[in-house]
């Protein structure tokens, strides 16, 4: 089973939409890798710079409620994928974005408000790393000299999609 993890990027706002993740004007690209420079280009958050090393080096995103709302564009998970981000942890997800993540073999993990607050308590440090074990549904967050362990839930179907490497491989063999 694939493991996910690495430097964390904290985006402390709810309702981050797919236009902010990848503006529509870049939807004319026809390969995933061409999306790479435009990650989170239109997201306006205090202290956030999409060109910063924190954003460029991130492997896991931590955010609040209704992450990925708006358009159905799978370019949003793809722009994460080509930048090395393979998991998003949030309070909740918009349905299409969440499904797109798992369909691509990536993870969209819902956390309770308490669990999220625990993760966000690390947000001030620039060395925060999150490691996730999708099979065991456990994780660990380290940073600022602290470490916390946590568990999470994943629907069996979503877990199966990650294991299969995505929906095309899963469905093609089965239907």
């Amino acid at each position: 089973m694939k493991t996910f993890g690495g430097p964390a990027l904290f985006l402390d706002r709810s309702d981050i939409n797919t236009d902010e993740i990848i503006p529509a004007k870049y939807l004319t690209e026809i390969t995933k890798k061409d999306l790479k420079p435009y990650i989170l280009e239109d997201l306006k958050l205090p202290g956030f710079d999409p060109k910063s090393d924190t954003c460029r080096n991130a492997r896991v995103i931590v955010s609040r409620g209704n992450f990925g709302c708006g358009s159905s564009r799978e370019h949003a998970p793809w722009v994460f994928e080509v930048n090395g981000i393979t998991a998003v942890i949030a309070g909740s997800f918009a349905r299409i974005f969440r499904q797109n993540m798992f369909n691509c073999g990536m993870a969209a993990i819902e956390f309770s408000p308490q669990q999220l607050d625990l993760l966000f308590s690390f947000a001030g440090h620039d060395d925060v790393v999150i490691d996730l074990d999708i099979q065991l549904r456990t994780g660990v967050i380290r940073g600022g000299g602290r470490e916390e362990r946590f568990g999470f839930e994943l629907a069996p179907f979503d877990q199966a999609l990650v294991a299969a490497g995505g929906w095309v491989d899963y469905a093609d063999g089965k239907y």
Partner: peptide
Amino acid sequence: GVGTTDLEVGILKGV
């Protein structure tokens, strides 16, 4: 509404 991967499987398999 769905993403491109769901669409792709829809095109190929109709599910």
